[in-house]
Amino acid sequence: MKLFPIHYLFFVFVTFLASDRARAAEELTVNLDHDIVKITADFNGTDVLFFGVAPDKGDIVVVIRGPLNDEIIRRKERVLGVWVNSDEVIMEQVPSFYAMASNRPLDTFMPSGVGAIHQIGIENIIIEPKKEGPQVKDPDAFRQALIRNKAKQGLYSWDPKDLTFLGNRLFRTKIRFPSNVSVGEFGVDVYLIRKGELIAQKTSLLSVRKFGLESQVFDFAQRYSLIYGILAILIAGLAGWLANSAFRKS
């Protein structure tokens, strides 16, 4: 069902390349097969296809970053035989989602300065404890734990093989948005690196939104929590009464 837009994009890019070569030579372009990820009742994660045209030869890195949030990481400790939560760290404004794809391993072409400035590569994401929050002796262990846990949940991913060139300049990649992805505006950054230099960069947006009844239920529960609670009881009361009267006769 998603085949149509992909073909369409192919068509667009091919004509684009043919008709306007001069302009294409300057600009790095990227397009997605859908720019809104909809979280609906049957949402079980989705793949988004990214197509782009590089203006020049070189290596391409695509980075998708989710909205920034403070994240809490807790460490368990054994107390009287039972694992309880002990130390905790609040990491300040960490991307809730981070997916990176490149046509070959980063360390083969990425200049370290560029990687650090643009936070390209998992080790370059800025993850630091909040100053006002609790402090620990080994914040790096918590940083690693955050990356490990996010990766396990499918929220952080980095695979150098995921981006492929479909010719000289046309490239594509597929990014997985798992079912637990958070909502908001996602930044899509594409970088073109050549001979250890950042030649071109392009930023676009992708939004992840809840659609349908689910999002309304969630918003309602947050905004009108008292009415929500009362409604929950009324539904339960009705269900109980219905159940009783339905089965009494039989």
Partner: peptide, 24 residues
């Protein structure tokens, strides 16, 4: 019922969709 309302107000942890499925 009291717990349901208080949890909904204080913690927003009552999931009516889940509750409905469980009730059925």
């Amino acid at each position: 019922a009291n717990v349901t309302v208080l949890q909904a107000v204080n913690n927003q942890t009552v999931d009516v969709v889940l509750a409905l499925l469980l009730m059925i």
